[in-house]
Design a protein around this nucleic acid. Structure first.
Length: 590
RNA sequence: CGGGCUGUGGCGCAGCUUGGUUAGCGUGCUUGUCUGGGGGACAAGAGGUCGUGGGUUCAAAUCCCGCCAGCCCGACCA
């Protein structure tokens, strides 16, 4: 197939679009792959659509290869199934909702667990039919509060979602493993580097869940990987080990001190180190000796607001994403000045554990970070303006209503598995495999009869790949200052022919002939046959568009050679015109 | 959700402080001539509800208010 630049619907931009910050967004717009159509919505131009389709094809091939079967649902879905599973409410403002002319509610599907579950319920009723793996490649809608970074976080995007249906947990594990393996092959073929990280969430119990993250500075997820063992996890999912108990039998009783004007951890530590009666003999006090207590509000899906206090070591911040993952589906919202005003037992800046907890004065549920050991002694708020208490011992002087993983995770923290140092990085989520269990099957009544004629609730898994996001991630991973440089497997064309000679000379004929030969070998060729465009522009556009091979039909044609460039390796060789098509066809994929 | 910055031909920008002829520059686009291996040269053109709605004024791109959109930062501080 020959794509002629003279007629292709394409306009490359000389300047970077100013509103595009991340490289993939900037280059995909500049090279004429996509155009913004609405906040978080993008139009795919011919080049972009070719790449999108190639990514989708690879995903499809790998799904088909493990025996999954493709179906296709509507994007516009009825309310009722989502009402049944509670997600009409749980998804909150992230769900696009609409009504028909009679006022009946619909939604634009953010993901399709309910519909797949009902489809299988509709048609299957025996264990003999299982396992069953179904998938679709479908446009998804999520009303993101802040779409950004082009395709990386849109409100409308293309996703492959698949679902497995098994009679029991063993079957689910096999389905999960098969999908996980297919994902590894898929991302390898797409030329995307990835880290597979544990995304197991406390609130979800033992359900296994792993994310495939493309490591990248502009990513929105933060994950850790161990420098020594194979442990890797989303920071939200990091579970630190239980600390050893400390014997506090010999500890002195807690003492309340006047600590005027110490509303922050830094001022508090400075005061303790500068006052003769407070400083320690053996070492200076640090922020890690203090216990800070943060109060937030939880907004439950039904709209109920519940205050929650969390205690973490003073040298750490509360990681709201981590905390939110554990209180899901509740969301965390600010604890405001008005809330402080309403609860007289909370003294802002001087909140201490003795006022917190369901049994204490404030009545606010109080959770302690898991890293805090029983028997550890702390400097912390004394619940009175300008007063702190020192030597307050957990397990002797105060208690809590539960433990939580809330403190931020840092580079160099010990690995929960082997205690070596953790390395922290950012990444873009490009895939997610998840053992759903029976939640949806139970809610929607998907059961089959087992070999004993007994009714069994089906066990499900769900597996997603962000197809349009993968295009952006591949662009992030494959570009330089000149433009894109696609892996062979997803490039919009296999080769780009630049005609660099004078108009009317033999270079145009040579380019045409080469294009025909390559096309006959089943390759897709971009042929720059534009009239009156200078060689410089042709070179720049070829590099910007970024096919892995570029052929220059220029001054060499007179002596029977063309230049063949490897855009990814940055190398070039002179090849005889007559051999060029064979040579390019045999170049290894990169 | 909060804060900051921004919105002027396709793209990148100036003009706004201090309101006042026909809103300007680069690039891109059209036409012509030249050029032809790194976004080439010269010339002549087309293209604008100055994001949007309201207000102030004799007069608004410019001042004021609302809204919409974009980018960045933040979201808890014991």
């Amino acid at each position: 197939m020959i794509l002629r630049m003279s007629t292709m619907f394409l306009r490359t931009l000389r300047d970077d679009p100013v509103d595009a910050e991340v490289p993939s967004h900037r280059l995909l717009v500049r090279a004429g792959y996509i155009r913004r159509a609405s906040p978080g919505g993008y139009t795919w131009l011919p080049l972009g659509l070719r790449t999108l389709n190639r990514v989708a094809t690879i995903v499809r091939e790998e799904m088909d290869a493990i025996g999954a079967q493709e179906v296709h649902f509507p994007a516009m879905l009825p309310r009722e199934p989502y009402e049944t599973t509670g997600r009409w409410t749980d998804y909150g403002p992230n769900l696009f909702r609409l009504q028909d002319r009679r006022g009946v509610d619909y939604l634009l599907g953010p993901t399709h667990e309910e519909m797949f579950t009902l489809l299988v319920k509709d048609l299957y009723s025996s264990y003999k039919d299982l396992p069953l793996w179904l998938y679709q490649i479908q446009t998804k809608f999520r009303d993101e509060a802040r779409p950004r970074a082009g395709l990386l976080r849109g409100r409308e995007f293309l996703m492959k979602d698949s679902y497995s249906f098994d009679i029991d947990q063993d079957g689910l594990q096999r389905s999960y493993d098969a999908h996980r393996a297919a994902y590894l092959r898929t991302f390898d073929r797409l030329g995307l580097p990835y880290a597979v990280v544990s995304a197991m969430s406390g609130a979800m119990g033992g359900s296994a869940s792993e994310e495939f993250l493309f490591p990248c500075e502009s990513g929105e997820d933060t994950f850790v990987s161990c420098t020594k063992c194979d442990y890797a996890a989303n920071t939200e999912a990091v579970r630190v080990g239980e600390p050893a108990k400390i014997d506090f039998a010999s500890f002195a009783a807690a003492v309340v001190h006047d600590t005027p004007a110490t509303p922050t951890i830094a001022t508090l530590v400075d005061l303790f180190n500068s006052r003769a009666d407070l400083k320690r003999g053996d070492r200076v006090w640090t922020a890690a000796d203090t216990l800070k207590n943060v109060v937030v509000n939880l907004r439950h899906p039904d709209g109920r607001i519940e205050p929650l206090a969390v205690g973490v070591p003073g040298d750490r911040d509360v990681d709201l994403k981590r905390l939110e993952a554990q209180v899901a589906p509740a969301e965390i919202v600010d604890f405001t000045e008005e809330d402080f005003a309403k609860n007289k037992n909370l003294v802002k800046g001087y909140i201490g554990p003795t006022a917190l907890g369901e049994k204490n004065a404030s009545g606010i549920r109080y959770l302690l970070d898991r890293s805090i050991a029983i028997g550890s002694a702390w400097i912390t708020g004394a619940n009175a303006p300008g007063r702190h208490v020192a030597g307050l011992v957990y397990g002797r002087d105060f208690s809590c209503d539960g433990v939580v993983d809330a403190a931020d995770v840092r580079d160099g923290d010990p690995c929960p598995k082997c205690s070596a140092k953790l390395h922290i990085r950012r990444g873009i989520e490009i895939g997610h495999v998840f053992q759903l269990g029976r939640k949806y099957a139970e809610a929607l009544g998907l059961t089959v009869l087992d070999q004993n004629g007994k009714t069994q609730v089906v066990t499900m898994g769900s597996y997603g790949i962000g197809v349009s996001r993968a295009v952006a991630a591949i662009a992030e991973a494959n570009h330089d200052e000149l433009g894109l440089k696609w892996p062979t497997a997803v490039s919009p064309a296999d080769v780009h022919i630049v005609i660099a000679g004078k108009p009317g000379d033999e270079t145009a004929g040579a380019g045409e002939k080469l294009a025909e030969e390559l096309s006959a070998k089943n390759m897709t060729v971009i042929l720059d046959d534009r009239k009156g465009v200078s060689p410089g522009v042709r070179f720049k556009d070829a590099e910007l568009i970024g096919t892995p091979r570029i052929i220059i039909a220029g001054r060499g044609v007179a002596t029977g050679v063309v230049e063949v460039r490897d855009r990814r390796a940055g190398t070039a060789s002179e090849i005889a015109l007559a051999d060029a098509a064979d040579y390019v066809a045999k170049m290894p994929a990169t």
